[in-house]
Computed example of a mutant assay.
Amino acid sequence: MTPRFPAHPFRRVLLPALLLTACGGAPESEVAPAEELVGTRESAMCSGLSVTSLTLDGISTYEGELAGAGTYAVSTFANAVSLEFYVDGQTPSTTERLGSSGTWSYSRTGVACGPRNFEVRAYPMVVASDGTKTICRESYKSVTRIVTEPCPPTASISCTKLSTGVLRCTGSATGGSGSYMPQWQGYWDSYFYQEEYLFPWQQGSWISSSSCSPTTSTTFYDVVQMHFKVTDSNGLTSNTVSSPAYKCYPVH
């Protein structure tokens, strides 16, 4: 029977061995590099193996946590799967599942709001009885999905203490979705009366005014401060911003 040799790259390794054998040298099996044989065995083990099914049944983000799940199935002679998860193409996290079919799940915290590109890749695996694992990276299946968590609005505040004895603050917001609902909260601290009070949040207009008569006293005064935030049409609340703490003549 005429022997059949592997493809050309491996044939070049065996030719010197054939010459040595003809001259009484070592058999060809003793001169082939071990790494070539390992690679050949892995390629042979992975031949014809594939991921036959990969699904992404659900994926979402909430308050910075992205979570998803799905199913997989591999072809005959594969008995496990290796999974890689990418968010916006960043360095993936990996996991493995035993069995020719089954389910997978994934979660990650600290995901920024806005549109994120999620990808799951599945590679067929062979797990031997001694626990040795072979991942067949030549054949894989992937599923991608764009998942979005709305970003909350961003609030800002600007205040002026008028000579008429009025503290006037104007709020503004950007980002978010739809219209905004402005909300104000006042803070009052009397150094003279040794009392302080944080008023409840109240919905209002974009401008809020408070009494603040000028004073130059270093011991006889009140401290007045305004806090501001907005809620958008999605129900997302912005950051809370605060005015400077203004010294005002005490309220009697």
Rank of each mutant, 00 (worst) to 15 (best):
S93K: 00
C113Y: 02
T144L: 06
G110V: 01
G64N: 09
A128H: 06
T109S: 05
V143F: 02
S101E: 15
G99L: 04
G68D: 06
V120E: 15
G64E: 12
G99F: 03
A112V: 05
S139Y: 05
T91I: 10
F118V: 11
K133S: 08
P115D: 12
Y140H: 13
V74A: 07
G70F: 15
E63P: 05
T71R: 14
S142V: 03
G99E: 03
R108V: 09
T144M: 06
T95E: 14
V143S: 13
S93C: 01
C136I: 06
L83C: 10
F85G: 02
T144A: 08
G131F: 08
V126K: 09
D130Y: 02
R108G: 01
G68V: 07
T95R: 12
S100C: 06
T103Y: 02
D88Y: 01
V111R: 00
E84T: 05
G89A: 06
Q90W: 03
E149N: 12
A128Q: 10
Y140D: 12
V126W: 04
E63K: 12
R108K: 13
G68C: 06
A69K: 13
F77I: 14
A67M: 11
T91M: 09
S93G: 09
R97A: 04
N117F: 04
I146W: 12
R137E: 13
E96S: 11
L66V: 07
A73F: 12
V127F: 01
E138A: 12
V143L: 03
K133T: 08
S101A: 13
S139N: 10
E149W: 10
A122R: 02
C151Y: 00
S105C: 10
S142P: 12
S105I: 14
C136S: 09
G131H: 07
T71L: 15
S101T: 15
I135N: 14
T109E: 02
S107Q: 08
N79H: 08
L66T: 09
R108S: 07
T95P: 03
G102F: 08
T148F: 00
F77M: 13
S105E: 14
Y86S: 01
S129Y: 15
R145M: 15
A128E: 10
E65R: 04
M125L: 09
A69L: 12
C113R: 01
V126E: 04
I146T: 11
R121Q: 08
T91Y: 02
G114H: 02
E65Y: 01
A112F: 00
T134K: 09
R137G: 07
R121T: 02
P150H: 06
G102T: 15
R145I: 15
L83P: 01
C136Q: 11
V127W: 00
P150D: 10
R121P: 00
N117V: 06
V87N: 01
N117S: 11
S100M: 07
M125Y: 05
C136E: 11
G64D: 11
S142I: 05
V126S: 04
A122M: 07
V74H: 07
E149M: 13
G68A: 14
G89P: 10
G64L: 10
S93I: 00
P92I: 00
E65M: 03
A67W: 14
S82T: 13
T134F: 04
Y140F: 08
T95Y: 05
T94R: 00
G110D: 03
